[in-house]
């Protein structure tokens, strides 16, 4: 499997402090990868580097065989705080993105495409409202519609649901799971929420605590698709998977030391486990 995106040895340092370094992973076409870890391990920085918004202090990001030098329309970002322009309507925000992708489209064509994109996230009725007149969940839907409207090769999401209440978050998670599987969207998402990661991700990257954070483990999610929040916790293997990730977040994320890693660990080939298939020794006590 050749990776569409390949992150090769990236690092971020602030003065003498290394937040993370020697981070290597790839994302295949059509694959959805989640990055899970505690605050302060540099998750958002990794996403920004992947988006091209920040440059790494070391290493490079290779997309389609080319090292990236900046942001691109091929990698759409859904920002943590929706980042809608408050002076534009919902449709205006999406149309702005579309007009950037399709420079030759007329205003009317962009507007029509924007309304179509809003329809896909169930917001056609609110197209003419300003962000201030939308609820938090609706705003984030517009943000997702804006990202999907430009048909990106890859979708980058930075804790997109963290500011939402539990009910809204659940509904949006199901919706994103549907949208992603419908279009086989390649995606990379940062999250704190273990269930969210299990619902959406094909692979879950577990990051140790910063500073000196590394990708400590890769968890392969073998639970069958389509997954919804309603059926997820009934799937065989779900609990083993969940326990494995929770155990990591509670204990192993702190215990992992980059200068004395486990014997089978190497930065370029982080060990992958599939706890849902064969419960790992750690989770099966």
């Amino acid at each position: 499997m050749t990776a569409y995106v390949s992150i090769e040895g990236v690092a971020r340092r602030y003065g003498p402090t290394t937040i993370f370094q020697d981070v290597w992973f790839g994302i295949a076409r059509g694959e959805f990868v989640c990055l899970v870890g505690h605050s302060g391990c540099g998750k958002t920085t990794i996403l920004n580097i992947l988006a091209g918004l920040e440059a790494p202090d070391d290493g490079a990001v290779i997309v389609d065989g080319q090292a990236i030098s900046g942001p691109s329309l091929d990698r759409a970002v859904v920002f943590q705080g929706h980042a809608l322009m408050p002076w534009m309507t919902a449709a205006g925000n999406v149309a702005f993105a579309i007009s950037c992708r399709h420079r030759d489209w007329s205003r009317a064509a962009c507007d029509a495409a924007a309304r179509e994109a809003l329809k896909r996230v169930g917001l056609d009725h609110a197209a003419d409202r300003k962000p201030a007149e939308l609820s938090g969940g609706m705003k984030q839907r517009v943000g997702i519609a804006r990202a999907l409207a430009i048909n990106p090769k890859m979708l980058l999401m930075d804790e997109p649901f963290s500011a939402l209440d539990a009910l809204t978050r659940g509904a949006l998670q199901d919706e994103v799971a549907r949208l992603v599987s419908e279009t086989a969207q390649t995606g990379f998402m940062i999250t704190h929420d273990v269930d969210e990661a299990i619902l959406l991700a094909d692979r879950i990257l577990l990051m140790s605590n910063g500073p000196e954070a590394r990708i400590a483990e890769v968890v392969v999610n073998t639970l069958p698709k389509p997954r919804t929040r309603a059926n997820l916790h009934h799937m065989p293997g779900y609990h083993a998977l969940r326990d494995h990730i929770l155990d990591f977040l509670i204990a192993r994320s702190r215990a992992f030391k980059a200068d004395a890693p486990p014997a089978d660990w190497s930065a370029r080939a982080v060990p992958a486990v599939s706890p849902a298939l064969s419960p790992s020794p750690l989770a099966a006590e």
């Binding site: 091209g52 918004l53 942001p71 691109s72 329309l73 759409a76 980042a83 002076w87 993105a97 950037c100």
Partner: peptide
């Protein structure tokens, strides 16, 4: 806001379009 400028950057809006469509209305 940095986040609006980041949106414009990820959309490859370009200097001119960013100035007219994002910075000008934000600062108006």
């Amino acid at each position: 806001r940095r986040e609006w400028l980041n949106v414009a950057r990820t959309l490859e809006a370009g200097r001119w379009r960013t100035a007219i469509r994002v910075i000008l209305p934000a600062a108006a």
